[in-house]
Nucleic acid binder design. Structure first.
Length: 278
DNA sequence: ATATCTGCCTGCTCGC
DNA sequence: TGCGAGCAGGCAGATA
């Protein structure tokens, strides 16, 4: 499940692969993937556009074009973007043919095509003039300088929902998903079931520090490689090797040997150490 | 306003 | 081996 570090890795990888290349056509094989405008208009508008800028906001990939428009892609759970050769593919053409999970194919002017592949079809693609119509409701970027403990305090104070659910709320904080929420709460020593409003300012500072540390480490490791995540270059990230609690239910905590607890919060699997996290 | 639930999807695992 | 049930989960939209 691509979260902030995985999406950041994606954007960094896409830039040298796509910069300056022009989209000759877009073949939409599963129209529901295109969130806006409708699939036919999308294909019409994107024809002839050139990739000009590359950015990330939360878990969204923002590909600025040489027009007033931005191509926005959200990978959700199982979305992937891969660049494939076409004319240069030669004898391996059969191997490079889009499979049944490839829902959008962008033909480029470089004898290549950019494919959006998504087994579970949760991913979405937009083409918009104003990015705010898509990402406008997102909360602050946790790695920007403007994100200080007071920002996090503002998101948590007065809240009765558990802190794990609040960390997953993209309108409060952008980019944190299930992996980095569980890992950050472990590093901060905070029980994920605690009501957001029950955290002391000292605990909020600790959580703020943990979030930034874990997200930076995730980017440094080029993300986590789980079953469905595949970056455009094929190079796999290694942050899963640093997991302290995520998907380690029943296994001993690396710090204290207490078996890691697995429970469900906000309908999502949640992992924590009952001894280390209070 | 906030909190919680449902639907979207497919592949995989599990039990019979 | 076959098959259905349950599960994984980000986010929009609905409901409480």
């Amino acid at each position: 499940m691509p979260e902030l570090p995985e999406v950041e890795t994606y954007v960094r990888a896409l830039k040298p692969l796509l910069q300056g290349k022009t989209i000759l056509s877009a073949n939409v094989r599963w129209p529901r993937i295109i969130a806006a405008p409708d699939a036919a208009r999308f294909a019409d508008l994107i024809r002839g556009r050139r990739f000009a800028s590359f950015a990330r906001r939360g878990k969204y990939i923002l590909l600025g074009l040489d027009s007033e428009e931005t191509l926005i892609i959200h990978l959700r759970m199982t979305g992937q973007l891969r660049l494939h050769g076409t004319a240069r593919a030669g004898p391996d053409l059969a191997e490079t043919r889009p499979d049944k999970h490839t829902h959008v194919v962008f033909e480029l002017d470089s004898d290549e095509e950019l494919r959006f592949r998504d087994t579970r079809k949760f991913g979405r693609i937009w083409l918009v003039e104003n990015t705010e119509t898509v990402v406008g409701k997102l909360g602050p970027e946790p790695l920007e300088a403007a994100f200080v403990p007071q920002t996090l305090a503002q998101a948590l104070t007065g809240r009765k929902a558990n802190v794990k659910s609040l960390l997953l709320n993209q309108t409060l904080l952008a980019g944190v998903g299930n992996i980095y929420a569980d890992e950050s709460l472990f590093h901060a020593g905070i029980d994920p079931r605690r009501p957001g409003g029950s955290l002391s300012f000292q605990e909020i500072e600790s959580l703020h520090r943990a979030l930034r540390k874990v997200l930076r480490a995730g980017i440094e490791a080029q993300g986590s490689s789980l079953q469905d995540y595949a970056p455009p270059t094929g190079a796999k990230g290694g942050f899963q090797e640093q997991f302290q609690v995520f998907r380690r239910g029943g296994e001993p905590c690396f710090r204290c040997n207490t078996p890691v607890t697995r429970t469900v919060l906000a309908q999502r699997s949640t992992h924590y150490c009952s001894a280390c996290q209070k």
